[in-house]
């Protein structure tokens, strides 16, 4: 177990190194930071002096090593716009995004398993065909369009749910304020969560359906039938567990992807998370914040994937984490 963990951590570090390199390389190509800092009225002499002070004249390698050294100490640079550490800016926005992703994940898990299983068991039923048809529609429509349509229907026409912001939020710990403790908070998170889930949910329904149909063809399912086991037990004990193994792997990657998808959802719903923040940072050419965002999202990606691999090992008895390593 320990050897496996160490191995995974080393892999994670390697991935983070590459991400940081790419993120840092982008920095040099996003315009002149001095223009953002000092504006038009400063003389060329002063500019050169500032460049020297900021280390912008050093070689790429020197600059990267300085950046990486600072990053390891938790310093990802200072946002030009907010005039405070970029990591702090992101951490303040992070809980809103994570809650949104969490809400979408709940919807995806809660719906994809029953829908996927049903369409696999009854592939020819009318309802299955409707679900599969809708899933194609869901995959095809971009998130921002789904979001705008939902705002139009549920906020503008029906007036059931609010269309923007987080509503009443309750502080929990540190920067973390939650939507899940007030009715108003719940009302505000519903539409953005559905919008965010709208792409992934059909994908997961189709994935679970395809896996399940394959598992139902397997010899051990036929054998279970030959033993006289009840259908529900065959579906949910024999087949579902085998179905979910590959789904877990894909799911881990998709949760990471969803963090990135929040950029669209948060923008449409004016959700004060880091996706919305990222878009603003791009508009303001707030380079340190953009770089910090890329690194934080990369980090979340790496962490979720590592956790998912560990869970996979726990669920699948043929993978023995305790004995894995080297």
């Amino acid at each position: 177990m320990f050897a496996y963990l160490v191995k995974r951590v080393f892999q994670a570090i390697a991935v983070m190194f590459v991400i940081s390199l790419i993120a840092f390389a982008i920095q040099g190509n996003l315009g002149d930071p001095l223009r953002e800092l000092v504006g038009q009225s400063v003389s060329e002499e002063v500019r050169q002096q500032l460049r020297e002070e900021l280390g912008l004249n050093d070689s790429f390698l020197q600059q990267y090593l300085r950046f990486a050294g600072n990053a390891l100490q938790g310093d990802l640079g200072t946002s030009y716009f907010f005039k405070e550490p970029a990591l702090d800016v992101i951490l303040k926005k992070l809980p809103a995004t994570l809650e949104l992703v969490f809400g979408a994940t709940l919807i995806i898990i809660g719906l994809s398993v029953p829908l996927g299983v049903y369409t696999a068991i009854k592939p020819n039923a009318l309802l299955s065909k409707i679900i599969m048809g809708l899933s194609i529609v869901g995959i095809s429509i971009p998130v921002f369009l789904t979001a705008i349509l939902m705002i139009f229907v549920f906020s503008v026409e029906l007036g059931w749910l609010p269309s923007f912001g987080r509503g009443d939020i309750v502080p929990v710990w540190g920067y973390w304020e939650t939507n899940f403790l007030t009715a108003d908070g719940w009302a505000h998170i519903i539409l953005p969560s559905i919008a965010l889930a709208s792409i992934m949910l059909p994908l997961f329904v189709r994935l679970i359906r395809a896996e399940m149909m394959e598992v139902l063809q397997s010899e051990y399912v036929r054998y279970a039938t030959a033993k006289g086991i009840r259908p529900w037990r065959i579906y949910f004990v024999h087949a579902l567990k085998n179905t979910l193994l590959p789904v877990i792997t894909v799911g881990g990657v998709q949760i990471g992807t969803m963090v990135a998808y929040t950029i669209l959802t948060e923008t449409v719903f004016q959700w004060p998370g880091m996706g919305f923040m990222f878009l603003e940072a791009v508009n303001r050419v707030d380079t340190p914040l953009i770089v910090a965002y890329l690194i934080v999202v990369g980090f979340i990606f790496v962490v979720t994937n590592t956790i998912v691999d560990l869970i996979y090992g726990l669920v699948n008895p043929t993978v023995n984490i305790a004995r894995m390593g080297a």
């Binding site: 397997s218 010899e219 051990y220 036929r222 054998y223 279970a224 039938t225 030959a226 033993k227 006289g228 086991i229 037990r233 004990v237 024999h238 567990k241 085998n242 193994l245 669920v315 699948n316 008895p317 043929t318």
Partner: peptide, 29 residues
């Protein structure tokens, strides 16, 4: 099935469910 008439399949490597213990598969029967 499994009660008055039982079946032994061809390939024991794929007949038993890989994610359930031998005990679970016997007890459920």
């Amino acid at each position: 099935r499994g009660n008055r008439m039982a079946m032994i399949f061809q390939d024991p490597m794929v007949t038993l469910n890989p994610v359930l213990t031998i005990g679970q598969q016997m007890v459920e029967t």
